[in-house]
Simulated scan of single mutants.
Amino acid sequence: MPAFVLLIAALALAFLLSRLLRLLAQFRRIQRIPVSTVALLPGSGQAAVTGNASGAQLSSPFAAIPCVFWSIEVQEYRSNGRSGSWRTVLARTSDAPLVLDDGTGRVQIEPAGAALFLQDRFAAQQGMFGGLNQSTLDALERLGVRTRTWLSTSRRLRIRERQIRHGERVFALGEIARAGAQAALASTPDAPLLLSNRDAPALARDLTMRMLGLLALPLLLLLAALLIGVFG
């Protein structure tokens, strides 16, 4: 087998292993830290809460939906000879803090550096089999993303937008901090805040499925290599 093929395979396996370990660490945090009421939050350490979200009234960049938090990602398809891949050209989130109220108290959520597990609320694509409406094109331009190439052809783009809306039920797990007199949950360098609009059991199931998917991929590649070796 050529050396460059082995190198690519090794890099791919290293990426999969890194991703798998990250998901495993997040899964273990959810399993290890039970959901607490805000009134019973400890003074320090990691904590998990579930409550209804509130905060600054924002408008999401693409769908223009009222919300208290948003996250967007824009990717461009870049071809390389016979193949290609999607590359992220813009990833941005709102930075205003949220507040979760579980009926026993309120805790502030600092979204900077958070690992997000939110459902897509808006998705669109330009090129091949789809186009973007004018309001989406205008939003891209305002965000600094060019929608056409230097040859004036449309760039092949896809967009994802996720939001947390006022009153939505939200799960958060992070490091206890203080925002004035109010308790807050935030990220640390070693453990990002986990933020989801699913409860803890549903998020744990989602992480499990993601890990199983990552484990299945190298096994399928190995099986394909064995079949090629036998029948090739």
Results as ranks from 00 to 15, higher is better:
60 S>F: 01
91 A>K: 12
8 I>C: 13
114 A>D: 06
58 L>N: 13
94 S>M: 04
20 L>I: 00
187 S>M: 04
230 V>F: 14
74 V>W: 00
173 L>P: 02
120 D>S: 15
85 S>M: 14
109 I>D: 00
108 Q>P: 00
198 R>W: 03
207 L>I: 05
86 W>Y: 08
144 G>A: 13
195 L>P: 04
61 P>N: 13
214 L>K: 05
112 A>N: 12
151 L>E: 15
62 F>D: 12
185 L>S: 02
60 S>Q: 02
120 D>W: 06
27 F>C: 08
5 V>T: 05
69 F>S: 01
85 S>I: 08
158 R>T: 08
39 A>W: 03
194 L>V: 03
216 A>F: 07
70 W>T: 02
131 G>D: 12
6 L>V: 03
25 A>D: 14
85 S>H: 11
38 V>P: 04
2 P>M: 04
146 R>V: 03
159 I>W: 06
198 R>G: 06
214 L>D: 03
75 Q>G: 03
184 A>E: 05
106 R>A: 13
211 M>L: 11
42 P>R: 03
201 P>M: 03
149 T>W: 15
117 F>V: 01
229 G>I: 06
221 L>E: 13
174 G>H: 03
45 G>R: 01
129 F>W: 12
221 L>W: 09
173 L>I: 07
17 L>G: 09
38 V>Q: 08
203 L>H: 01
52 N>F: 06
104 T>P: 08
223 L>V: 08
185 L>G: 02
22 R>V: 09
13 L>Q: 05
141 E>T: 14
205 R>M: 06
60 S>E: 00
21 L>A: 10
98 L>G: 01
81 G>S: 01
143 L>V: 12
84 G>H: 05
10 A>K: 08
200 A>F: 01
69 F>Y: 14
128 M>L: 14
211 M>Q: 05
15 F>A: 15
69 F>N: 01
186 A>F: 00
180 G>H: 05
73 E>L: 13
200 A>W: 00
166 H>D: 15
71 S>D: 14
26 Q>G: 08
57 Q>L: 15
154 S>F: 13
190 D>W: 02
230 V>R: 15
58 L>V: 10
205 R>K: 07
28 R>V: 10
120 D>E: 14
197 N>G: 11
39 A>G: 10
139 A>W: 00
28 R>Q: 14
39 A>L: 11
134 Q>Y: 12
31 Q>C: 12
153 T>Y: 14
5 V>S: 07
140 L>E: 01
51 G>A: 07
